[in-house]
Design a protein around this nucleic acid. Structure first.
Length: 507
RNA sequence: GCCGUGUUCGUCUAGUCGGCCUAGGACGUAAGGUUUUCAUCCUUAAAAUCGGGGGUUCGAAUCCCCCACACGGUACCA
């Protein structure tokens, strides 16, 4: 049995789309499950679309996600180089090979001439296609004499190499997800394999590299399915054994239909990219999962389940579990809409499961970001107190700021609802009771306060929330006496005085 | 237009060879409980006549045909 070798082959034209991440993930899972290799190849045959920083971004994104390549641009390997621009000299001979055995031909038609043809056809509600029916009337090595062709090439006239589809042939593509896909060659046009700038197109480079790198399975997005017949024919033309194909369903936008795009993320408020990206030209910033406070493990888990599931009811799975459970057969055929709410749920789950060590790393960073320095023991204690309420890392601060910084403002809604007449008198008295507990104990303080509330026939919800409001600034947070214990009796007294002064008596 | 691929609760999906599906789970939603607050958590509920229409069959979400719709492709882009 052939060794499993798969590749993820992005173009460095911008940040890595989350759909691309899923494609890479499925490749990874499949490779690892079969003890195979996972390769990163950069497909930069279109020099006009190159975006500086994109390649580095891609590498960093996978590092963050914890998806490790066995070979690739950044780590090398036996089958390098792993960047197509660096493989440029290799491709010409393969184009030549195809010409020599009649599977391809030179074409000299200018882009302008072809455009005109297309427009002309369009006017008649037809589509112009460079194919078996039209190539006889165009400017190429099939219609020109050998001398004319040589003359053109020797004079430096630009040319491309096109694939020569056989006429009226049924082409079969076997797809691991979709089964047999058939198409008649008459419907296909003679794709350019080799461009006039001396670079191969995706199609040629892809097949040559996959063959040379001994790729066993091509797992890629569904947008490639229409060109799969060409790829199958190319393998045939070269006399090479074709890899297995699996075309993944697309990731759709959450509302409406269509591919998930960068704009959808901005519009709906969720990241479409693993890492934040700043466009080097426009300076525009697109948000990333990392910066938005997602844990990489959660992103992986969420992505894995978008279009695949193990067939059981298990939903929480780490990378290793995914590796053992994954199967291409269980990938669904239809596109999946991205669901922000479910992503949020996954992240919450992973935050709860994270080790203290990992979580504290994030937590202390958040504190630092807000200019807070705290003793580790204290910070750790606070983290435990509030972690179950955070869904995303940045929420740590929203949930815990009052443990480090006294509130200066009080949620007006809560004040209106809870701060009754007389509150400004009761709170200091309750505070005195708490101060009288020596040494402080949550339970004893709690009991004394309860006694006071009951004997004065106070509205429990109102008075206790006013107390909370004074300490927190809002009607939220963990157990009140837990908070008092954490910030200390002295600080509590200070906050009560301040709240009473600020809010004062009310009707 | 042409070609290709798809179509089960709002969303992600289970549903291998037709019967155990009066279609299951999860997210979300609603109600209730816990919490004196918020969040969490727990319980319960509503939610898909399986895109539509024809067949085949004792029996179809599952097989066949037609239609509709959506998406993808249709570049010297990947």
């Amino acid at each position: 049995m052939k060794r499993v070798r798969v590749r993820f082959a992005p173009s460095p034209t911008g940040p890595l789309h989350i759909g691309g991440v899923r494609t890479a993930l499925y490749n990874y899972l499949f490779a690892k499950q079969n003890g195979g290799d996972f390769i990163l190849r950069i497909e930069d045959t279109d020099q006009t679309r190159f975006v500086p920083g994109a390649e580095e971004y891609i590498i960093e994104a996978f590092q963050w996600l914890g998806l490790q390549f066995d070979e690739g641009v950044h780590i090398g390997g036996k089958y390098g180089p792993y960047k197509q621009s660096e493989r440029k000299p290799m491709y010409k001979q393969y184009a030549q090979q195809l010409i020599d055995n009649g599977w391809a031909y030179y074409a000299f038609d200018t882009p302008e001439a072809l455009d005109a043809k297309r427009k002309e056809a369009e006017a008649q509600k037809k589509t112009f296609q460079y194919d078996a029916h039209t190539r006889g009337g165009l400017c190429n090595s099939l219609t020109l004499s050998k001398e004319e062709v040589d003359a053109k090439i020797n004079s430096g006239e630009p040319y491309v190499v096109r694939f020569k589809y056989p006429a009226d042939t049924e082409i079969h593509v076997h797809d691991l997800i979709r089964g047999e896909v058939k198409i008649n060659s008459n419907l296909l046009d003679d794709k350019v394999l080799y461009k006039s700038d001396g670079m191969p197109t995706y199609h040629l480079a892809n097949i040559v590299d996959d063959h040379l790198m001994e790729i066993s399975h091509v797992i890629r997005g569904e947008e490639w399915l229409p060109s799969a017949p060409l790829h199958v024919m190319l393998y045939k033309a070269f006399g090479w054994e074709a890899p297995e194909f699996a075309h993944l369903p697309l990731l759709l936008k959450p509302d409406g239909n269509g591919k998930l795009s960068k704009r959808d993320g901005d519009r709906l408020g969720f990241p479409v990219f693993p890492l934040q990206w700043k466009d080097p030209k426009s300076g525009e910033i697109s948000s990333g999962y990392r910066e938005s406070g997602y844990l990489p493990e959660a992103v992986i888990n969420m992505l894995a389940l978008l279009g695949w599931n193990p067939g059981t009811e298990q939903e929480i799975m780490d990378l290793n579990t995914l590796v053992s459970l994954f199967s291409i057969e269980k990938i669904s055929k239809s596109g999946a809409k991205f669901d922000l709410e479910k992503a949020k749920w996954f992240n919450h789950q992973y935050i709860q499961m994270a080790s203290d060590e990992v979580l504290f790393g994030f937590f202390s960073q958040e504190l630092e970001k807000h200019g807070v320095t705290a003793e580790k023991d204290y910070a750790l204690r606070i983290m435990h107190l509030i972690k179950e309420r955070v869904h995303f890392i940045p929420e740590f601060w929203d949930q815990c700021s009052y443990f480090f910084v006294a509130p200066t403002e009080y949620d007006p809604q809560a004040v209106k609802k809870r701060w009754k007449a007389g509150t400004e008198l009761h709170l200091p008295k309750m505070m005195e009771l708490i101060e009288s507990v020596q040494p402080f104990s949550k339970q004893a303080a709690h009991d004394k306060v309860m006694d006071y509330v009951q004997s004065n026939e106070l509205n429990m919800g109102a008075i206790m929330n006013s107390f909370r409001l004074s300490l927190v600034g809002a009607a939220k947070g963990p157990d009140l006496f837990e908070i008092i214990d954490a910030i200390g009796v002295e600080e509590t007294a200070k906050r009560i005085r301040r709240a009473v002064e600020t809010i004062g008596p009310r009707e």
